[in-house]
Design a protein around this nucleic acid. Structure first.
Lengths: 75, 75
DNA sequence: ATACATTCGGGTAATTTGGGAT
DNA sequence: GTTGTCCAAATTACCCGAATGT
């Protein structure tokens, strides 16, 4: 194990509401509502703005994606 | 922050059901049926609304296009 | 410190969804 | 068998002024 790995937790790339909104083709405010509703985890800056974990967002995207030819996903 | 800074991965331009419906001159609900039937891929927002890949829609449009004098394509 | 884009909040339209009947 | 319409409920989009981020 390296020294760095032993003393630091993995840095997560964070996305702004606007960036997440672009990925889903949605209004940034809608992303905020998802956070409020608990549909997506969020981190707050000291000033109160929200940030989102890129890994969680990507996981959501792949989860909610249905390819042509596949049956509509029901989970 | 600029829009371009959003991501280093390829951005997929997504269309709303209403936009796809306009392109095909069809009711938005019909587009929804296509998605349910697996004729076209779709991405769901966490709220349950559908988004469609523009590239896939354009491909479908060109597929369904028939030139004058040519036999209609049936696949 | 200045400038500018973004993201707060809230409120109110517009769109989408799903089911059912035609 | 596909498409268009009606309905109510849910989700999302646009409006504003003020605060935050870079």
């Amino acid at each position: 194990m390296t020294i760095a790995a032993a003393s630091h937790q993995v840095e997560e790339h964070l996305l702004t509401p606007g960036e997440v909104a672009t990925l889903f083709r949605v209004d940034p405010k809608t992303v905020t509502r998802w956070a409020t509703a608990g549909r997506i985890g969020s981190i707050r800056t000291p000033g109160g703005h929200r940030r989102f974990r890129e890994s969680e967002v990507q996981h959501l995207l792949s989860q909610l994606t249905t390819e042509a030819g596949e049956p509509a996903r029901v989970e």
